[in-house]
Design a protein around this nucleic acid. Structure first.
Length: 326
DNA sequence: GAAGTACG
DNA sequence: CGTACTTCA
């Protein structure tokens, strides 16, 4: 149950990479890593990123292949990692865990039947961010001098907070939730081939003639990652009823409906647990040799999967440094 | 999450 | 037309 319905409400336009030069993007680390992890696993032979004891660090391949995109476009990434899950998030996490186990059962069946295509599909679904992946990701980012922010809870909420309070220009995530956490400008498809999409909170509110709080209320009616919505209520109905009645409580009262924990979900978006003051150094000087040593020598990742990426980082980092002094 | 299809 | 459901990744 995603938030795809929010796309129908959001003001989105594509923006050329060239327009983003010189900007700082707070990247939702979980979301970004997950995307690169799944594509790496799908298109890279297991041996290239699996240690002798079977530990998989496809994230290291993904990071090395994914970072150049920022540097080559003159964008400074700041990776925002999740902290401990909120109480409500725990339920969602639990639900996803059950679904994952379901996939893993199917995976077993597919293996037994020798259905290779199905095995590959299911394997991509059962990927997750293990402790090793979290730790090694942080370490390679540290060696490459990419700033990291540790969120107390939701990474997206923290990213939205730093975007709202001026120290970064954009939030980078595929999740439409960023809008609900109050991110003023969100970049999507930073990991894809073409130009990114820009999702604009103020434009979204203007389009519908609603406030930020009313947008959150409408989303709760539709359903979010943290609550089931009202059946039969999609984006159109939600906006129209929120505008008619003013807020979530009035809509629920008028309909005679109820949403469990609605007040908690509302607070989670409107007043999330974030660090008010976070500092980071946006002057990135990667130690490519050290990062390569870590990835290839220490973790045994096959050189041919990462050498191009490291070379691109080396070149684009030099270029950025020159630009600064020009 | 995206896209296509079915349902009311 | 708006929402729900399905499939693929």
């Amino acid at each position: 149950m995603g938030n795809a319905a929010l796309r129908d409400l959001a003001a989105i336009e594509t923006v050329p990479f060239a327009d983003l030069e010189g900007s700082v993007v707070a990247v939702d680390a979980h979301n970004w890593l997950y995307r690169y992890l799944t594509t790496t696993v799908r298109f890279t032979p297991d041996e290239a990123y699996t240690t002798g004891d079977g530990t998989e660090v496809a994230n290291l391949v993904g990071i090395v292949q994914g970072l150049p995109k920022f540097f080559e476009h003159g964008i400074t990434p700041v990776f925002v990692f999740d902290g401990g899950p909120s109480e409500l998030k725990t339920e969602e996490v639990e639900r996803r865990r059950e679904q994952r186990e379901h996939y893993e059962e199917q995976l077993e069946e597919a293996r037994e039947e020798g259905d290779d295509v199905r095995v590959a599909t299911l394997e991509s679904r059962t990927q997750r961010l293990t402790d090793v992946i979290q730790e090694t990701s942080r370490e390679v980012l540290r060696l490459l001098d990419v700033p990291v922010i540790e969120a107390p809870a939701e990474g997206e909420a923290q990213a939205a907070h730093v975007a709202r309070h001026g120290s970064v220009d954009y939030v980078g995530t595929e999740d439409y939730d960023a809008l609900l956490f109050g991110a003023p400008l969100t970049l999507r498809q930073l990991t894809s081939k073409g130009d990114p999409e820009l999702m604009d909170l103020d434009a979204t509110l203007d389009d519908h003639g609603i406030t930020y709080e009313q947008l959150v209320d409408a989303a709760i009616l539709i359903g979010t990652d943290f609550n089931d919505g009202i059946s039969g209520v999609g984006p159109k109905t939600a906006i129209s009823e929120i505008k008619e009645h003013g807020d979530l409580w009035s809509v629920l009262e008028a309909r005679g409906d109820t949403i469990p924990d609605a007040d908690l979900v509302r607070t989670l978006f409107l007043d999330p647990n974030v660090d008010e003051d976070v500092a980071f150094d946006d002057d990135i000087t990667p130690d490519v040799d050290a990062a390569r040593e870590y990835v290839v020598e220490e973790w045994g990742v096959h050189d041919d999967e990462v050498e191009r990426g490291f070379e691109r980082i080396r070149k684009s980092a030099v270029q950025t440094g020159l630009d600064r002094w020009t």
